[in-house]
Simulated scan of single mutants.
Amino acid sequence: MELYENIAEYYDELYSAGDDVKKFYEEETKSFAAPVKYLSIGCGTGTFEHYLAKGNADVTGLETVNQLIESANRKRRTQLMALRFFQMSSLEMCRFLGKAFYDVITIPNNRIIYTHDTTLMAKLFFDCKQLLTPKGKLIIKLPNFEKFKIEPSVKLPVRESIRVKLFTGIKTSPDGKKIVSQELETGNGKRLTVTEGAEILPLTKNQIEQYAKDAGFTKFTFYADYKRNEFTPKSDDLIVVIS
Rank of each mutant, 00 (worst) to 15 (best):
F220N: 03
L39M: 13
D175L: 08
L83G: 07
T232P: 07
L68N: 07
I69Q: 09
A33V: 13
M93N: 12
E27P: 07
D214P: 00
V65A: 11
K190H: 09
L201Y: 05
L238M: 14
A72Y: 02
Y51A: 10
R95M: 01
M1L: 09
Y38E: 13
L138C: 14
I242R: 04
F32M: 09
P202C: 09
S90H: 05
K23Y: 10
N109A: 09
T118Y: 06
H50A: 09
P143M: 11
N6H: 09
P157I: 10
E2V: 01
D127P: 02
D19W: 15
Y15M: 12
A212W: 04
E160K: 10
I200K: 09
F32I: 12
F231W: 15
D117M: 00
A100Y: 06
T45E: 05
I170P: 06
T221R: 13
K30W: 01
E209F: 00
Y15G: 11
P233Y: 01
S16N: 14
G136A: 13
E196F: 01
E27S: 08
M121L: 08
L52R: 13
K23D: 14
I69L: 10
T29D: 13
F32C: 11
S181C: 11
F86P: 00
T106F: 07
R74E: 15
E49P: 05
N110R: 14
F148N: 04
Y4L: 12
I112Q: 05
A122C: 00
E28N: 14
P134F: 11
P108F: 04
T218N: 15
F231N: 03
A53W: 03
D175G: 00
I140Q: 10
V194L: 05
P108T: 03
Y114T: 13
I113K: 04
N66M: 09
R159S: 14
T195Y: 05
T45S: 15
P157T: 07
N144W: 14
I105E: 13
K171H: 15
E63W: 03
R191T: 12
Y4I: 05
P174Y: 04
E151I: 01
L3P: 04
A34C: 01
F145P: 08
E70Y: 12
S16G: 04
P35S: 10
K165E: 08
F96E: 04
T47V: 15
M1A: 13
T133K: 15
G216Q: 03
L120M: 03
D117F: 03
P174T: 02
L132S: 14
S71L: 06
G169R: 15
L138H: 11
T29Q: 11
L68D: 12
M81I: 07
E63Y: 00
R163S: 12
R95E: 13
D236G: 06
F96K: 10
P152N: 08
T186S: 10
K123G: 03
L132H: 11
I140T: 07
A122V: 01
G18N: 08
K23P: 06
S173L: 05
P143Q: 03
E146F: 00
E9W: 06
V21Y: 12
T204H: 00
K190D: 12
A34N: 04
